[in-house]
Simulated assay, not measured.
Amino acid sequence: MTPHDPYHRGSRAVQDRVGVRGLADHVGRSIGPGIRPVAAAFLELQPMLVVGARDPDSGRVWASPLTGEPGFVRATGAHQVSVAGRAGTGDPLAAALGRPGTPVGTIALDPRTRRRMRLNGRARPTPRGLAIEADQVFSNCPKYLQKRHLLGARTGAGPAGPPRVTAELTPDQQRFVAAADTFFIATVRDGGADASHRGGNPGFLRVLSPYELSWPDYPGNAMFLTLGNLTTDPGAGLLLLDWTTGTALQLTGTAALAYGPDGTRTVRFTLTEAVETAGASPWTWSAPEYSPANP
């Protein structure tokens, strides 16, 4: 990756395999280190920011939700945001986000407007939460985003419950995953991290066994940042939210991309550990209006 090329060899390999390098070059012009006023205004409206990173102690990749009243995420400069909040004590990224210089990927996804913005950089702890120095800032198209309305904080919402840690998905967790229409995925590259979103109609995320999942790779923006990262480093973290109760299911493991003979692409995820936390988010959202782009 250079200032003139936002992609590394993994992303380039997938782009070339699919035959979209020219389109990726065009779309890649939107990636830059600066936070424009419209992006800053978007961030201040969000009640949640998803952060992806690798825990340097375990080597595992996780995606974690950070939540707060709108305004808890703010641009504090042309290349920096501050987050007034931390990962919970039992969150698997709490220690990593407490260290200065941790590479992070973030995504702010607004189900109300089907808009999303990604900001990647390095985080450092502050007295109130986090500061993130950005090196990549860009928006994505609204494809596969389900529309939801924010109904407000749950009545009596308090601190998150103690995490439940398992080495495989329980039957209830398997049903929850199979019914999901949205999840977030964290991946890493040499010296960096990324957080992205995947969506579809319920059933697009398939449970193959208590420790294996798969999902189709739908046509997107041709950047292939997530799949490019997985091409060079298989570490991955998934985050699924119960949009009504605020329960978070965080999964860590490895993921691999497979190409079908008909041009389709499928990602297969192998679980190492699952962390389920009740009340990880205080917010409750309406039932979804599924994206018209969903297959």
Rank of each mutant, 00 (worst) to 15 (best):
G19M: 06
V20T: 08
R21T: 11
L23A: 15
A24R: 03
A24I: 01
D25N: 12
D25S: 14
R29S: 11
R29N: 08
I31C: 11
I31R: 07
I31N: 06
G32R: 13
G32C: 04
G32P: 07
P33N: 01
P33Y: 09
P33K: 02
P33L: 01
P33I: 01
I35V: 10
I35M: 10
I35C: 10
V38A: 14
A39T: 00
A40G: 12
A41K: 08
A41G: 10
F42G: 10
F42L: 11
F42Y: 10
L43C: 04
L43E: 03
E44C: 14
L45D: 12
Q46M: 12
Q46K: 07
M48I: 10
L49K: 07
V50C: 13
V50I: 15
A53R: 06
R54C: 15
R54F: 08
D55A: 08
D55I: 05
D57K: 05
D57I: 02
D57N: 08
S58D: 11
S58H: 01
S58W: 00
V61I: 04
W62Q: 02
P65N: 05
L66T: 05
G68T: 00
G71N: 08
F72Q: 07
H79C: 05
H79Y: 11
S82L: 09
S82W: 04
V83A: 08
A84Y: 11
G85A: 06
G85L: 11
R86H: 09
A87K: 01
A87W: 02
G88Q: 05
T89W: 14
L93W: 01
A96C: 07
A96S: 12
